[in-house]
């Protein structure tokens, strides 16, 4: 089902590293997906390695629209903070989802799928398929 006409799923990249999150956003911007917001939520408030629930919730709020928001994360505790952030936004229940996917490939695929106008669930499923892709298959 395509979400019509305008709203497209937004994506938040959650990494322990601010630079890594911003780098992935930069990389994905290459796909030139119109109207898809891909935002970085990396590092802590002190700009140290780690993740911050406050930064994640703030970023979700900034990119939120009726199509929903997909969160991608790098390592374990980023997932915990992503989950906490989603729980702290009860008004958005169900429309903020976390993808279990490799962060680079997953974000890339999600941006493409979101650009094509797919629903949050479809974008999430597509991103999660990146887990089983073999990178070196000719």
């Amino acid at each position: 089902m395509k979400v019509m006409p305008m709203a497209k799923v937004s994506i938040v990249v959650i990494s322990h590293s601010k630079q890594l999150a911003e780098g992935i956003v930069e990389l994905v911007s290459q796909t030139k997906q119109k109207d898809v917001i891909v935002a970085a939520a990396g590092g802590t408030e002190e700009e140290e390695i780690g993740t911050s629930v406050d930064i994640i919730t703030k970023t979700i709020n900034e990119v939120y629209n009726e199509a929903g928001v997909l969160l991608l994360f790098d390592l374990g505790s980023a997932f915990m903070n992503a989950e906490l952030a989603a729980e702290m936004l009860p008004d958005m229940e169900g429309s903020v989802q976390i993808a279990d996917a490799p962060i680079v490939e997953g974000t890339y695929i999600a941006a493409v799928e979101a650009g094509l106008g797919y629903s949050l669930e479809e974008v999430k499923n597509a991103a999660e398929k990146a887990k089983t892709w073999k990178k070196m298959d000719g």
Binding site: H16, E46, V53, S77
Partner: peptide, 12 residues
């Protein structure tokens, strides 16, 4: 703790 601890210890 949730706000100020960047590692897994914060959420846990």
């Amino acid at each position: 703790l949730i706000s100020k601890v960047g590692g897994a210890a914060g959420p846990l």
